[in-house]
């Protein structure tokens, strides 16, 4: 019971703050949007906790709500975004957006209503408990190859950022 209440609370708050990130009726200040993004991430971490993914929840808060958002705020303040405040979402854009949200909603609704109440084969317990040891096993055994490729991808990103942002001296 309390589980269900918590789930609906977290899910609703995640959605609400996500909407407020992009379409805040009161403030169009980018910093406010970033702060609502922090809220979205925090509530999403709550959902992770309910899935028993404790480590993921902690990482979500530490890395995303902490480090990444600080970086976002730095960029926003450095760029001093003024135009964003005055820019309005066009009529066509909002109508198209609403229509596509409606279509996605109907599709998901139809797809989910066709499912049996309990998916066959699903046990109540998640197959991967959310502590670090099983995660490490998954990363270094089952998903070793993509994990290693991601390190190459990060190298590419690093080389690219240094190259593109560096001033050529000569």
């Amino acid at each position: 019971m309390i589980q269900d209440v918590l789930f609906y609370l977290f899910a609703f708050m995640t959605l609400l703050s996500a909407v407020l990130v992009v379409a805040n009726p009161v403030s169009r200040n980018p910093v406010t949007s970033a702060m609502f993004l922090v809220l979205t991430i925090l509530f999403m971490a709550g959902l992770f906790v309910q899935l028993h993914a404790f480590f993921l929840a902690a990482v979500q808060i530490l890395v995303y709500a902490g480090a990444v958002i600080v970086l976002f705020l730095f960029v926003i303040m450095l760029l001093d975004l003024k135009e964003e405040q005055s820019r309005r979402i066009g009529k066509l854009g909002s109508v198209l957006g609403l229509v596509s949200v409606g279509v996605v909603f109907v599709l998901f609704n139809r797809a989910l209503s066709g499912l049996p109440a309990k998916v066959p084969g699903a046990t109540g317990q998640p197959s991967l408990e959310g502590l670090t040891a099983p995660l490490g096993h998954a990363l270094f055994k089952q998903y070793l190859l993509p994990f290693e490729i991601l390190s190459v991808l990060l190298l590419v990103a690093m080389v690219g950022v240094i190259l593109l942002s560096k001033k050529d001296l000569r």
Partner: peptide
Amino acid sequence: FVSLELTSLSLYI
């Protein structure tokens, strides 16, 4: 997906 992103990111740069 991961290798597609590796390729794309390199090509963007």
